[in-house]
Amino acid sequence: MEAELTDLKEQVSLLRKEISRVSDEAEVRKVHFKSPYTNQPTCIQVVDMYADHPDTYVEFLGSRYRGKEGVKRLYNGRFQQSFVNGRNGPVRGFLLDHIMMQDIIDVDPTGTHAWCRMRALMQAGTHQSVRETHPRGHVQWWEGGLYENEYIKENGVWKLFRYRYFPFWHAEHEKGWSLTKENYIPWPSKTYPEDPLGPDEIIEQKMLWPDTRVVPFHYPHPVTGKKTNDDDLRAPHFGKDATTGDAPLTLALPEGQSRPGAGNTWTSEGSVRVLPDLVQNL
């Protein structure tokens, strides 16, 4: 009877941990899906979804916006001014729909840090009726991108933390993706405060179609547990050696940031769930 009771307690403990993990994964997913910016640019509210942690940042288009102030500059400055003329909400005739899919979420065993890889398919543009009043005139385009984000739990609430969005490809609606001009979106060239709405730093990590390098995975191979080789992330020309392609992309942290828990591992159902070099307890 005592042995059965001990076994039952162990099972209950395991079930509690599993329920907590599944619950945290669901909450992280909802945080991303609930981001107002993924529906329409209600930029003020989306900034409040970011962590107050000093290491918070957004990595986007070869640049990095650091801390809550940098995040505000991107959303309340660049996006809000460009898309909706400073309004905290939509304007008639401007479309900015993000469809989120293929999400893969991993939560560390402390239940305070999570990673998410997710794809986005965007439909954007202006209606012909506002071509004379919207600064973009009459335009419509598609965009495909990929997120490799990190989230942390602050005061019991999951928040966006290290936000990395890689806009993978763009396509003008009439021409399709095969005729998209290279560097469809200009890379930022100036930082804040020289550019009042600019990023805190310019980084070398730049990728736009027809560049097809693979964004690194926060997780290992689901069966072998091995990390993807860097050369396999490159995209050389057809028939050429991998080393002739651009350097592989990276999820490395900016200078001055670290992952205190690096080197720790954890397992679930007999397999490694998160890469050892990404595990961090905050």
Score class of each variant (00 low, 15 high):
S189F: 00
Q205M: 06
Y151E: 10
N76F: 00
D108K: 01
E10Y: 07
I203K: 01
H98N: 03
Q140I: 06
W187H: 02
E69T: 06
G93F: 07
M1E: 07
T38W: 15
F217Y: 14
V274H: 04
E194I: 12
T133A: 04
Y50I: 04
I99V: 14
Q280L: 04
L15C: 06
Q102Y: 09
S23P: 00
D108L: 08
A262T: 10
E59W: 05
V279F: 10
L96C: 08
Y165K: 01
S178T: 06
R273V: 10
P236R: 05
E255A: 15
Q80N: 15
M118I: 04
S63P: 00
K159Y: 08
V91A: 07
L146R: 09
L278D: 01
M49D: 13
R119M: 08
T42D: 12
K240R: 01
P199K: 06
V272L: 07
Y163G: 01
E148T: 08
S268W: 12
Q45T: 09
T133I: 14
P216I: 00
E182F: 01
C43T: 14
F79V: 13
E172K: 13
W187T: 01
L233F: 07
Q128W: 07
K181Y: 03
L5N: 09
S23I: 03
H138S: 05
P276C: 02
P90K: 08
I99A: 10
K190W: 03
V12Y: 10
M118K: 07
D211E: 11
H134E: 01
Q140C: 06
L95M: 12
L14R: 15
I203Y: 02
G77I: 04
L61I: 09
R117E: 09
H32K: 11
K227L: 05
P109R: 08
S35T: 14
L275V: 04
R78N: 12
E69M: 13
W141Y: 15
K175Q: 06
R273D: 07
S35E: 12
R29M: 05
A262H: 07
G77C: 08
H237S: 02
M1I: 04
H218A: 11
L121I: 06
P188W: 00
T180E: 01
I99D: 10
K68Y: 07
V46Y: 02
I99Y: 15
M118P: 00
H138K: 10
V84M: 03
N85V: 03
Y192H: 14
D231C: 13
T38H: 15
V130M: 11
V71I: 14
K9G: 04
H53W: 06
L121A: 07
E201Y: 08
Y65W: 15
T244E: 15
D231V: 03
P41M: 14
H170F: 13
Y75I: 02
M207Q: 11
V139C: 09
G93Y: 12
E10R: 13
P216F: 00
V130N: 02
R136G: 05
V47E: 06
R87S: 07
S271Q: 14
M1K: 14
L253S: 04
Q81R: 11
L208P: 01
L14E: 15
P41Y: 14
P193D: 08
Q205Y: 05
Q102T: 06
H170G: 05
G86A: 04
P186I: 07
A120P: 03
S268T: 06
V84E: 09
W177E: 12
N76W: 00
N155F: 11
A3L: 11
